[in-house]
């Protein structure tokens, strides 16, 4: 029944590996940048606040697909030579997802009580130390369920790199499909793999949510 899938399994799973790698790099860059973006969004310095807010509001109102295209077109102009789809996709995902992680973390930062920050200062910590050792760890822990959910969304989003010709999971399924015309099983297989991996992620996220509530 799954003949087209099983006979092309190494090729398809190679594509799945590209998808996983892309998601990994997107998160490895997007979360740290998101931490900074979130700090910028609560900054009292208007030279930080306004540019960061502008960046977040613009990117969040543009489809990810266009961001991917835009970087694919702009990178060759900046570096002077054509860029592979993979690094180009990684850059666009980092820039795009950082705004979403940033907004989640902004809510996290704002949930940290003033008393805790002042306690940090009163023990002699500097602004950077207070942020590094008190604000960021508390916000990250509190926002963990939302962070996991957004990570799942990022993982799902990676398939959009399809449009710049990256041979990821869906692109490879499409290639096999044009040769063998087994759309039901091929896209069914892709859908099942995504469903299982994302479902596991959402169960983990929910578990953290429950733990957070129990911890008070």
């Amino acid at each position: 029944m799954f003949d087209a899938v099983s006979s092309n399994l190494p090729f398809l799973m190679g594509g799945f590996w590209v998808t996983v790698k892309l998601a990994f790099f997107a998160l490895a860059g997007g979360i740290p940048l998101g931490i900074l973006v979130g700090l910028g969004r609560i900054s009292r310095n208007k030279w930080v606040y306004y540019p960061v807010t502008f960046y977040v509001n613009v990117i969040r109102n543009i489809p990810l697909l266009l961001v991917i295209f835009w970087f694919y077109f702009v990178m060759p102009i900046i570096i002077g030579s054509p860029l592979d789809p993979f690094p180009s996709a990684v850059i666009s995902f980092i820039i795009f997802e950082a705004t979403y992680f940033g907004e989640i973390l902004r809510a996290g930062y704002q949930s940290v009580s003033k008393g805790q920050i002042e306690a940090g200062y009163s023990t002699g910590l500097t602004y950077v130390q207070t942020t590094r050792y008190i604000l960021i760890p508390i916000a990250l822990r509190r926002m963990l369920p939302s962070m996991i959910t957004q990570s799942i969304v990022t993982y799902q989003d990676t398939c959009l790199a399809f449009v710049i010709g990256l041979p990821e999971f869906v692109r490879r399924a499409r290639i096999v499909d044009t040769l063998e015309v087994r759309s039901i099983q091929l896209f069914g297989f892709v859908a099942i793999v995504f469903f299982i991996t994302c479902y596991i992620g959402s169960v983990i996220s929910r578990r953290f949510e429950v733990r957070e509530q129990e911890g008070g």
Binding site: Q156, C159, V170, S183, G188, A191, F194, F195, Y199
Partner: peptide, 20 residues
């Protein structure tokens, strides 16, 4: 089901596999 499968995959499934 609809939340845990990327929208593009759903689109491909309905468009290519749907008629079958």
């Amino acid at each position: 089901i609809f939340r845990n499968i990327p929208f593009m995959v759903q689109l491909f499934f309905w468009y290519y596999a749907g008629p079958m």
